[in-house]
Design a protein around this nucleic acid. Structure first.
Ligand SMILES: [Zn+2]
Ligand SMILES: [Zn+2]
Ligand SMILES: [Zn+2]
Ligand SMILES: [Zn+2]
Lengths: 161, 161
DNA sequence: GGTTGATATGTTATACCATAACACTTAGCA
DNA sequence: TGCTAAGTGTTATGGTATAACATATCAACC
């Protein structure tokens, strides 16, 4: 349950190990980690923040990798299908997975002030959703678990104001 | 934790008691439950399914209550602010609250086959989100908790196929 | 090497979701 | 009555996402 993203960390390493894992996963699964896909993941990885599809597209455009929306959405489809990125439904935005390689149900803490996002691992079969699902006979395929609020760095100042 | 929506129930009563509660809440809080707002809630209440804003708008349009998008979005703003309806982020759609009156953090079970939605009550301070938030010093303001899958009525058939 | 089929990419157009901005109306109240 | 706040009508626009079809790439197979 490392809620990385709010704490400072060796981000260069954080990026390089994630890319290496993605690379290896693609070899194992015979997926094609093409230039656009790889670069898209790098762009998402640059910060622990969610990017809109069109934000991603703008960067790809500057680099001559494509300017039409499908370019970005296809890359994002690939990344999310492979588990390399997740969609933040509450923001209509996308973020690189912080636990790449682990099969997991992500849960997100989203700071509405600084827009940073921390990813925690949830267990879909536990918690309230799992309980209700079991009780009603519902079969869970995918979960969207997001909390909007203020990160440790953006807490309101002391109450003496 | 009544996951109404998947089970058959006396829906006429389900609708009328919800409308009555909304009515009373508006009187208490001095909110204006205008024709457009009331009718919008009725439309959302008609089924335990999520409707897009433009779906709602289409019905309002047929009834001469307005045809431009802001009509629907204003009504939805009112309903969601008052707690009479919730947005399903995973569908960009809206649903009438099934626990109107209770102050609650909703959690949804969404059937991807028949599109019906069940609302359960979650507790933001519990469960995995709450744990992680406490551990990291994150302050939760709002939660989005949704499960996509198959409702009891849409389970795959017997495995003898 | 050439054929073939599957996958990826380039491109145009369009559909869907949501809000800005401003004019006008209505209801409540000094 | 005149003021103010809130609601409504309307136009225009911005943001998100996909359909559809042409072209290119690559590996498997003959
Ligand atoms: Zn990092
Ligand atoms: Zn923050
Ligand atoms: Zn009902
Ligand atoms: Zn169903």
């Amino acid at each position: 349950m490392t809620a990385i993203g709010f704490r400072s960390h060796d981000h260069a390493q954080c990026v390089s190990t994630t890319l290496a894992r993605a690379e290896r996963y693609c070899v194992e699964k015979k997926l094609k980690f093409t230039a656009i896909r790889r670069r898209s993941l790098e762009i998402l990885l640059a910060e622990h923040r969610a990017l809109g599809a069109y934000d991603l597209l703008a960067v790809l455009g500057e680099e001559g990798l494509g300017t039409a929306p499908p370019v970005a959405y296809r890359a994002l489809d690939f990344l999310t299908s492979a588990g390399f990125a997740h969609k933040i439904e509450g923001l209509n935005a996308y973020i690189a997975c912080a636990h790449l390689g682990a099969d997991h149900a992500p849960a997100f803490l989203i700071c509405t002030s600084c827009k940073s996002v921390a990813e925690a691992e949830a267990d879909a079969t536990e918690g309230q959703l799992g309980e209700v699902a079991r009780a009603t006979g519902f079969t869970i395929r995918r979960t969207v678990i997001e909390a909007l609020g203020l990160c440790p760095n953006c807490q309101p100042e002391a109450p003496c104001a």
